[in-house]
Amino acid sequence: MTPPPFTTVSGPAAPMPEDNIDTDIIFPARFLLITAREGLGRYAFHDRRFDADGAEVADHILNRAPFRKAPILIAGANFGSGSSREQAVWALLGMGVRCVIAPSFGEIFHGNCLRNGILPITLPPAMVEMLMADAARGIAATVDLPAQSLTFEGREAIPFDIAPERKEALIHGWDETAQILNRFAGPIAQFEAAQRATQPWLYSKESAA
């Protein structure tokens, strides 16, 4: 499963000025019964975007122009906390989101983003607050991953951090499993041989059930 490559992304940034937007809010649990990973965009933020009858909640940010198809979200601290469900990321991807900006992220969600072609950008809270105000006015932003810069129109470019290997993987849309199998087959086998010698009980059961 190769993620879509990421180089630059431009467009409106939907502001979500709220801390602790958890993955149950991003993707309510009952939709986890769907086993497909495509077509989940309609369930993103479902219980906030739609009322009990399935009608759009008019004042939800993602139901308003110009944010309906915003490729960027800008949110409060601890975005994506809670459940490990990767559907939260697939749903964002499904509605066209490629970048999330926040002061901090739930750690499992953060890793899930990187493995699916979504760039999580961590910036200081005061910076996020300032950019959130721009975003709310509909000012578009450009994310340039090779240059590691984020530019809201009319502002100077803001640099952001990302680990070099993560950056390369995102730019090329690499599949992590294939990378590991290609690069580390030897060391994995060596590790297993050594562990089998020192901790044989981890290898003594042929079958758990």
């Binding site: 499963m1 990973r37 490990s84 499992i108 992590e176 499993t177 580390f184 994995i188």
Partner: peptide
């Protein structure tokens, strides 16, 4: 499942992961 933290009670390094990582563990054990 994020509550994989539970197994740390045994002195195991246990943590929740996403579906992509599950596939990686299945194939590469890493």
């Amino acid at each position: 499942d994020s509550h994989t933290t539970t197994h740390g009670a045994f002195g195991a390094l246990a943590f929740g992961i996403g579906a992509s990582e599950q596939g990686t563990v299945m194939a590469a054990q890493c």
